[in-house]
């Protein structure tokens, strides 16, 4: 690819839970917090709905990073969905680590409904850090 690192615009998929992170993303908008448009949100009911397979699929289909946003532990509309999600992310990250894949491209963040600024901050962070990491070879390898 001809893209240099400066121009590189990472592609990111974000799974946002309906109750907290999704609401925070809306609040970020209401307060006009600015962040880069690199994250493409997919609304899910709960972070517990985020199948690690979705994350793998995203990373193999062109995403340079993937994120899951949920309610803070202890605050889940479905009691314990985020605890289960946390385990799954831990496992996925471990598999990536074991295989020498870049587990830093798998992100999770708990952002409550009132944390609009936090959401924007995180969007900046994930975009910038992914940008620093450069294009994901997983995302760009046609032969996998």
């Amino acid at each position: 690819m001809a893209e240099t690192k400066e121009q590189f615009e990472p592609k990111i998929i974000g799974f946002l839970c309906n109750w907290c992170t999704g609401a925070a993303s809306d609040l970020a908008g209401t307060t006009r917090a600015q962040y880069p448009p690199n994250v493409h949100p997919i609304r899910v009911m709960c972070s517990g709905t985020v199948d690690p397979v979705y994350m793998i699929k995203a990373l193999l289909s062109g995403a340079d990073s993937v994120m899951m946003g949920g309610c803070h532990p202890g605050d889940c509309h479905y009691v314990s969905g985020n605890y289960k999600a946390r385990r799954r992310v831990a496992m996925l990250k471990q598999i990536f680590k074991s295989l020498g894949l870049d587990d830093n491209r798998v992100w999770a963040r708990w952002i409550s409904a009132s944390e609009g600024p936090e959401f924007a901050k995180f969007m900046n962070q994930i975009t910038e850090e992914t940008r620093k990491q450069g294009p994901s070879s997983m995302a760009n390898d046609w032969a996998i």
Binding site: G70, H72, P73, G74, S80, N82, Y83, K84, R86, R87, R88, V89, A90, M91, K93, A108, R109, W110
Partner: peptide
């Protein structure tokens, strides 16, 4: 099975800033 269980106190760095 790990897929069916969870603990409130584990992997606490995941999801935090």
């Amino acid at each position: 099975l790990p897929a069916t269980a969870f603990k409130e106190k584990e992997f606490e760095q995941i999801g935090e800033k």
